[in-house]
Design a protein around this nucleic acid. Sequence first.
DNA 1: TCTCAAAATTGAGTAGAGTCATGTCTTATT
DNA 2: AATAAGACATGACTCTACTCAATTTTGAGA
Lengths: 212, 212
Amino acid sequence: MPVTTTPAGRRERNKQEKLDRIVAAASELFAEHGVDDVTTQQIADKADIGTGTLFLYAKTKGELLLLVQNSHYVEALERGRADAEAILDVLDAVLAIVRPIVECNRVQIDNGRTYLREMVFGDPQDSRHAEALAIVAQTEEAVAAVLGRDNRVRTAEAATLARVVSAIMFLSMAATVNVGLSVDDVVQDIRNQLRVVLLSPTADQTTGRPAR
Amino acid sequence: MPVTTTPAGRRERNKQEKLDRIVAAASELFAEHGVDDVTTQQIADKADIGTGTLFLYAKTKGELLLLVQNSHYVEALERGRADAEAILDVLDAVLAIVRPIVECNRVQIDNGRTYLREMVFGDPQDSRHAEALAIVAQTEEAVAAVLGRDNRVRTAEAATLARVVSAIMFLSMAATVNVGLSVDDVVQDIRNQLRVVLLSPTADQTTGRPAR
DNA sequence: TCTCAAAATTGAGTAGAGTCATGTCTTATT
DNA sequence: AATAAGACATGACTCTACTCAATTTTGAGA
C-alpha cells in the first residue's frame, strides 16, 4: 500500500503528463503557424499520442485553443489589474486593464480572433469554455471596481457598464475591419468608444444644454 | 442580331435563375433544419445543380447564409427605422430600431447566431460579407440619427455611440449565455445596457455629485 | 449557319475534424 | 500474485466542406 510515492496514482500522473504534452505541442504549433494552419494530426503527432486520444483531452480544436490561451489571458488580466491601481483617472485606469489583454490577443492575430470566436460561439458545456467566460467575468469585475471608484456611478450601473466595456473590447479586437490595426491602434479605437460611454452626456463637456 | 429579346444575354439570365434557385433552396433548408443540419450537397440537389456549381455562387457555406439572411435584415432595419420615427424618447426610439433586428435574428436562433459569427469573422473580400457590413453601417447610421435628435449629443459622438449600441446588440444576440432568452428578454437585456450608456452619468438622475 | 475561345458546369476527389469499436493498461480486491 | 472491472488509448473510419481537371454550353464573328 504505497502511500508515499503515489499521491494520486500512476493513472492520474499519466493523464496529467499527456495533457501537458498536448498543451505544449498545441501551444508551440499554434504560435508558430497559427491555429488554421495546424492540423489536429500534427498536434497529436507532436504530443506523441493517437488521433483519438487528443479528443479525450479537448472535445474540439477550438477547445484546444481555449486551453492554450486561457492562461495567457489570466496573466494579462493580472498585469492590467495591477497597472490600473496606480492610475487615478477612470478612463485611463480602465484602459490600463484593457491594454495587456489587447496585447495578449494580438500576439498572433488569427489565434486571438479565433479565441474570441470560440468564447462567444463555443460550447458552454465545456470546462475550457467555462474558464474563458470566468476570465471575462473577472475582467468585468476589475473594470467595475475601477468604475466604482467614481462615486457618481452606482454599483449596479458599474457592473452593466463593465459589460459594455467588455463588448466594446470584444468587437474592436475581433472585427475583420480591424485586422490591420496595431495594438496601439486597437487600444486607441477602444479609448475613443470608452470616452463617449464613460464620460458622455455630462453637461461640463458639451454645450451644456439640459436634458429634455 | 437579336436586340429585342436579349437585354443582357441568355448567359446572364441563366446565372440569375440559378442563383435564385440556390437562394430559394438554401433559404428553405436553413429555415427548416438550421444551418448546421443542412449539407451543401442537399442545397445543391434541391437547387438542381452540381456540387461544384454551388461554390461558384457562394465561396463558402457561411456566405450562403449571409446571402439568404441579408435581405431579411434589410427589411428588419427598415421596419425599425420607420417605427423609431414616431417615438420621442431617445432610448425607446433606439430600441424600436433594435427590436425588429432581434426578432429577425431569433427566427431561428442557430442561423441568427451563425449569421452574426460570419459577419464578424467572415471573409471581408466577399461581396455578401460586404453587404452584411453595409447593413450594420446603415443600422448604426439610423441609431446615430436618433441619437442626434438629442441636441446634447454632437454628431461625432452620436456615430461612436451608435457603434457601441451595435456592439451591445451583437453580443447580447450572440452570447451563448443568452441562447435561452426570448426576443423580449434579449431586448430587455439590451435596454438595460443602453439605459446606462445613453443616459448614464447625467447629474439629474444620480445623487448629483459633480464630475471630478 | 458554322466555328471556336471563353465562360460555365460538373462530380469525383481531397483534406481535415471528429467518432467509435476494439484493445491495453491500472488498480482495487482477493 | 492473480484477477476482474473499468478507465484509458488507439487509428481506421466517417462525414462534409470545398477543389479542380475535364467537359459542356454559349454567343460573337466569319
